[in-house]
Nucleic acid binder design. Structure first.
Length: 567
RNA sequence: UCUCCGGUCGUCCAAUGGCAGGACACAGGAUUUUGGUUCCUGGAAUCGGGGUUCGAAUCCCUGCCGGAGAACCA
């Protein structure tokens, strides 16, 4: 963890404006200890945007020796469900954070909120309005026109109290009355024009059941919940900036702790959509295979894809925090993932699209076992024996009949190294009736066991292969970006963001072959398939003996760039 | 038309009146039994115009651009 003033492992500045505020508040003695909170609404799954907020609030608490609460903001019974609570808790823990005590619920505070509302009524700072919804909206005015007071605005305290109590008692149908704060109707900030505090909703709440039929609005619940929990720094996204004056107004009227709201810009990512509504649409329309589809920016999707939580935390640190609307290059996320995986993934060999190779001068039936270390720079990780025989499979992409410029993989007459095995030279090419290459014949140099060059001759190309006899069939899913452009919302006339889905975002290879050491690995385990990328055993579909791997991210591919550039 | 917030390399974030810096991306090179990793090098920015100041990315004025704001959503 970075301490204030320290640098991240990458040398990037560890400071941001919120961290500075926290530091000041601690140094000035304004607070002895900070308390933050993460307040999801239980109506959807967490995504990478939430991860930024989680890392910020939990991370700051951890860094400065404070605490962070998890509070479910459950004030709208018609859209929320306990179904989401467990997944949210699981995702936060997976990210590596633990909240203070039990998780909290805004609904735990309904009684206190109610009492405070009565207090405001008694102080003449709130009133029951009995206008219909559309009338209230009309009288509120607009950006250019001040609002007009409701005819009910000057009800007596007793009348208000009586009505409000009967609202709670369930005497009125939905929409008959609301409780409004009595602030004024001429603010430029529409949020301050006598905002609603309570509405009547005869709905079953997922936690309080039918105990309540009036429910607090966000503005009347959030700041008060912060105060009850004595939250010192209440961090939220920019869209709540215009709510801050109201947040502060409510707290000023109450005998309560004065929490401070601070806004920051939410995360946008290239090639990604982030809104709950759009993600829900992708799931409901079957554009992806559920919330945990590895192409989804949800935390469960990324987990299934093989992204390590440490990489996501590192990413959150790298992107920084500010108040500017911005869109982070998804390449930065991928870099953080590769960076972490490079240090933590054992190397193994797998062939995605196999091409048969017969080694003519290899003795029939002979099997050689070569020693292959699990990590080139971590000898402590040890090694395993990789068997090779007369027939092996190499990557189809590693052979070209006509070698382009700078090609140093296999081609007729070319010698290459089979990693950790030996040097082979292509002597013949076998085609089927349609002319497609179906088999290669090579010779090997028995002096080159282990892949060494016996006489020091230069062998630039190194391929990987799997023994035909020993390889294990596997299903491998290759994932690409879900959208075909940086900004999926960038639409031409008559286009929809869903027209920008990348049709090649998933490719399932049924005929892959993996080395025998991968026969029995744990679901969720992460590996580098040498020269290809990082893969993880799928948490749902992987079985011992019937492996299924997901490609987390490719390795950097310099050759692909060279080839693309030269056309 | 009104109010608020924000404009720094292609992207993201620093610089808190005193040498505009880092990361990603990109380009070149070294090392390499992964065209991986690692290392070195390079190009690359203060939205425009005024003003204050010895000195402005930073403060002031003004213009321009982007975002947000009129839910009984959060």
């Amino acid at each position: 963890m970075n301490r204030p003033g320290e640098s991240t492992p990458q040398g990037a500045p560890a400071s941001n404006f919120i961290r500075d505020i926290v530091k000041d508040d601690l140094e000035s003695g304004r607070h002895d200890q900070i308390r933050t909170r993460f307040p999801p609404e239980p109506n959807g799954y967490l995504h990478i945007g939430h991860a930024k907020a989680i890392c910020l609030s939990f991370g700051l608490a951890r860094e400065f020796g404070g605490t962070c609460n998890l509070r479910f903001d459950d004030t709208n019974p018609t859209t929320e469900d306990m179904e989401y609570v467990e997944s949210i808790k699981e995702d936060i823990r997976w990210l590596g954070f633990e909240w203070e005590g039990d998780e909290k619920y805004t609904s735990d505070y309904f009684e206190q909120l109610y009492e405070w509302a009565e207090l405001l009524i008694r102080d003449g700072k709130a009133y029951v309005d009995s206008l219909p919804e559309d009338r209230i909206r009309e009288l509120r005015g607009d950006y250019y026109k001040k609002g007009t007071p409701s005819p009910f605005r000057d009800r007596t305290v007793d009348e208000n109290l009586d009505l409000f109590r009967r609202m709670r008692a369930g005497e009125f149908p939905d929409g008959a009355h609301v409780l409004r704060a009595r602030i004024g109707l001429d603010s430029q900030n529409m949020n301050m024009r006598d905002p609603l505090m309570y509405r009547i909703r005869h709905a079953v709440h997922h936690r309080t059941g039918d105990e309540w039929c009036i429910y607090p609005m966000y503005d009347w619940a959030h700041g008060q919940s912060d105060a009850i929990e004595r939250i010192t720094h209440s961090l939220c996204s920019l869209e709540f900036e215009a709510h801050r004056p109201l947040y502060e107004w409510f707290l000023e009227q109450l005998p309560a702790f004065r929490s401070r709201q601070i806004e920051f810009a939410r995360l946008n990512l290239t090639y990604t959509v982030m809104s709950k509504r759009k993600l829900l649409e992708l799931v409901n329309e079957g554009r992806v295979n559920g919330w945990d589809d590895p192409r989804m920016p949800t935390l469960c999707g990324m987990r299934r894809r093989g992204y390590p939580p440490e990489a996501i935390r590192d990413f959150a640190e790298r992107i920084g925090v500010s108040k500017r609307d911005s869109t982070v290059d998804v390449a930065l996320l991928e870099h953080a993932v590769r960076d972490r995986l490079n240090d933590t993934s054992p190397r193994v060999m797998a062939v995605l699209r196999p091409l048969k190779v017969v080694i003519d001068n290899w003795p029939d039936g002979r099997v050689e076992e070569f020693d292959a270390p699990y990590h080139p720079k971590e000898p402590d990780w040890g090694s395993r024996k990789v068997p090779f025989g007369k027939v092996i499979f190499i990557e189809r992409d590693d052979f070209r009949e006509e070698a382009p410029r700078k090609w140093f993989r296999l081609a007729p007459g070319r010698e290459v190294r089979l990693r950790y095995a030996c040097l082979i030279t292509c002597v013949d090419v076998v085609r089927d009736a349609s002319g497609e290459v179906v088999e290669l014949h090579c010779t090997w140099d028995p002096e080159s066991r282990g892949g060494r060059s016996p006489d020091g001759r230069k062998v630039k190309g190194t391929l990987h292969g799997v023994s035909a006899e020993h390889g294990i069939p596997a299903v491998v899913r290759l994932y690409e970006r879900l959208f075909d452009r940086e900004d999926p919302m960038d639409c031409d006339e008559g286009e929809d963001w869903k027209d920008h889905l990348n049709p090649d975002s998933i490719e399932t290879l049924e005929g892959a072959l993996v080395e025998p050491s991968l026969a029995r690995v744990e679901p969720g385990s992460r590996w580098q398939f040498e020269r290809l990328g990082y893969f993880c055993a799928d948490s749902q579909d992987h079985r011992p003996g019937a492996p299924v791997f997901n490609r987390t991210v490719t390795l950097r591919d310099t050759w692909a760039r060279i080839e693309k550039r030269s056309g």
